[in-house]
């Protein structure tokens, strides 16, 4: 880094696939959108981890207990890795963790606006409570697949440090989803009705997390190289993947 005058406008550089590399070289509006994306990720991981903690004690066996513990632990770790990047922009890491009650949930039948709630930027799906082991496993599989789509999108981010963190997280988040899938295969035999009911509950709520099909924010972030694939394309891709997993288990 040398602080030479920019040789081309940063917007043009980004539009052509350029990468930004540190808090020192992001322009103001890019900074705002980037921090927004990162804090939504951090809040979702923290809320996801807090919600999944209960599943540890619902786990029917030791293997499941370990899997649930691991997911709870690693989601908090993933939040911290992105929070570390935010710290470079001035975010107070210690206070950030205390800013919201990550375990807070609405009641099961409430409907909440999928747009962000107040200052807590978690995805709306993380406001709904889990009801038990089957429910936790189903949510983890469906949301896990959605998370993989989101992470795959973010590993192309024009903010290189974020893209790199996402590349590191992707295999672990994939493992979380696979752990869920293993659990789901067993439950598909032992608690078929429970699984069906949970799938019906979570499918629309997870689908919402991709955001509106037409989104000005997406266009803005695409211009900055922070996003690449539109919400609806990601949602359809997730839907197809979820459909094939459920079909394979005879659950559709």
């Amino acid at each position: 880094m040398t602080n030479d005058a920019a040789a081309m406008p940063i917007a043009e550089y980004l539009a052509q696939g350029g990468k930004l590399t540190s808090p020192e070289n992001v322009p103001p509006r890019y900074r705002g959108e980037l921090l927004r994306l990162m804090s939504s990720f951090v809040d979702s991981e923290l809320a996801g981890s807090a919600g999944f903690a209960a599943a540890i004690n619902w786990a029917p066996g030791i293997k499941e207990r370990i899997a649930a513990s691991r997911i709870t632990l690693e989601k908090a770790d993933h939040a911290e890795r992105v929070l570390d990047l935010m710290q470079g922009f001035g975010t107070d890491k210690a206070l950030y963790n205390q800013a919201h009650d990550w375990a807070a949930r609405v009641s099961r039948d409430d409907r909440i606006d999928p747009r962000r709630q107040g200052g807590d930027m978690r995805l709306s799906v993380f406001y709904y409570p889990l009801t038990g082991w089957t429910d936790a496993v189903v949510m983890n599989v469906l949301m896990g697949m959605a998370t993989l789509h989101a992470l795959t999108e973010m590993q192309r981010s024009s903010y290189q440090p974020l893209a790199e963190v996402m590349r590191d997280l992707l295999p672990r988040e994939r493992r979380h989803m696979e752990l869920g899938q293993e659990g789901l295969e067993r439950l598909a035999r032992s608690d078929r009705d429970g699984v069906r009911a949970s799938v019906a509950y979570w499918m629309p709520r997870v689908a919402e997390t991709f955001g509106p099909a037409q989104s000005e924010r997406f266009e803005k972030q695409r211009g900055m190289g922070l996003r690449h694939t539109d919400n609806e394309t990601l949602r359809q891709s997730w839907r197809a993947q979820a459909g094939s997993v459920l079909t394979a288990l005879g659950l559709d």
């Binding site: 705002g32 921090l35 927004r36 975010t91 107070d92 206070l95």
Partner: peptide
């Protein structure tokens, strides 16, 4: 206005303006 923000608690700095 689609102003940027996140924590709304003065912690994260997403909403920085001049």
């Amino acid at each position: 206005m689609d102003a940027p923000y996140s924590c709304k608690a003065g912690v994260c700095s997403t909403c920085r303006a001049k």
